[in-house]
Design a protein around this nucleic acid. Structure first.
Length: 357
RNA sequence: CGCAGGGUAGAGCAGUUGGUAGCUCGUCGGGCUCAUAACCCGGAGGCCAGGGGUUCAAGUCCCCUCCCUGCAA
């Protein structure tokens, strides 16, 4: 039936799965019928422990749903790809985190164009790591944008966007939420895209910002930053690439940390003996050892950033910059699994001068 | 066949050169105290991941399997 729209979906990681599932659903009553004629994803690559060849999440899901999958090595000047495209003869290509730049020939192929789901409120955070950067920057909200693709990096005209508050959610949580939000947005705009009545607003390039890929070492927490910044960093880097700091020569992953209100940091009078310091279990002593050691009459100097200043109540209080305190509530030793700080503390004796670096 | 660290009591860990399983927390009972997430005393709770082997004797040594984790991709 000529009334059926042929769709090609291109995506690779988990983030692209919800949209795939949504497209695979039969169209709702009253909508134009559609057929997902081809799912394109990155070739299986050796991944994970053991370097076993593994399919991408999108491929795995597509196979489960019995959809035809194509995994071209390259899209540029590749006869195999041209053939795939010609056979699928898509009217529309939907792209979501495919992982490769689409050549102009491909962008021009479908009569209804190519649309892309991007995990930010464009024109902010064009590029590879929009979610990480939004969290790291302390933005109060982020979202997803559906747009027509152009040759530039995430520069296409916007169809619509949807926002959500970031609140205390980490990158992992937002990743999941935004992937679903993106799928919803796609479906809501779907009929309009088919009928050619979808919105088409050019991006204000002067307001554009870029979200460069996150490098591994960006996860190394610098405790000399203020407490709020440390916590943002932890949330931004969780679960990937992971926030960490060194305790001795052990690389400790930090999964959750909270900024302790400044006004509270100064007056924690409850020196519970719960915190098991190896000697002189008095937390007060642990709090100002520098002064004592330096024989300074004035003990107003805050503990050095990174120093563990207390382990009350099953959490780990660490000195941050500006005399502030960050409380670690979930962490992971190398080779171990992530665990609440209370559990972690059972197996680790913290000395008075123990500090993260 | 990428590299590496693990799987021991409900939780987190220790267990030295092989010799009958310990610690902290929790839990149960009792005590102390004006009081306590405090302290004291006592108890319960483990086929030491699974399978094979070496040995008088294996958590501990050797081989295999399963599972977990970090790194690297």
């Amino acid at each position: 039936m000529s009334g059926t729209v042929r769709i090609m979906y291109m995506g690779t990681p988990d983030f692209a799965v919800p949209a795939l599932e949504a497209l695979a659903e039969p169209a709702a009553n009253g909508s134009v019928s559609r057929e997902l004629v081809s799912v394109v994803t990155q070739p299986d690559r050796p991944r994970g422990r053991g370097h076993r060849l593994a399919p991408s999440p999108v491929k795995a899901r597509a196979m489960e749903m019995g959809l035809p999958v194509a995994q071209p090595e390259s899209l540029r000047g590749n006869a195999e790809w041209e053939e795939t495209l010609a056979n699928a003869a898509p009217d529309l290509i939907v792209v979501c985190a495919y992982g490769r730049i689409l050549p102009i020939e491909t962008l021009r192929y479908p009569r209804l164009g190519c649309v892309n789901i991007h995990a930010s409120l464009l024109p902010r955070y064009r590029g590879a790591a929009p979610i990480h950067r939004a969290v790291e920057s302390g933005d109060s909200e982020t979202g997803v944008t559906l747009m027509y693709m152009s040759e530039g990096l995430d520069e296409g005209d916007m169809i619509a966007s949807r926002s959500m508050p970031i609140a205390g959610i980490d990158t992992g949580g937002l990743h999941e939420a935004l992937s679903k939000l993106g799928a919803e947005l796609l479906m809501d705009e779907f009929d309009a895209i088919i009928s050619g009545t979808a919105g088409r607003e050019p991006q204000d390039s002067s307001a554009a910002t870029y979200a460069p890929p996150v490098k591994k070492d960006e996860g190394h927490i610098d405790f000399s930053a203020d407490a709020a910044a440390v916590c943002r960093k932890v949330r931004a880097m969780t679960p990937s690439p992971g926030a960490y700091a060194y305790l001795g020569d052990e690389k400790i992953r930090i999964w959750k940390a909270e900024a302790e209100p400044a006004e509270q940091s100064g007056l924690r009078e409850d020196y519970s003996n719960n915190g098991r310091f190896s000697e002189g279990s008095d937390r007060a002593a642990a709090k100002e050892p520098d002064c004592a050691a330096a024989k300074k009459p004035d003990c107003a100097g805050p503990p050095a950033p990174g120093k563990i200043i207390g382990t009350d109540g099953g959490t780990i209080a660490v000195a941050a910059g500006q005399g502030e305190t960050v409380t670690i509530t979930m962490l992971q030793s190398p080779g171990g699994k992530p665990m609440p700080a209370s559990d972690w503390l059972r197996g680790h004796i913290i000395g008075k001068d123990t500090a993260f670096r």
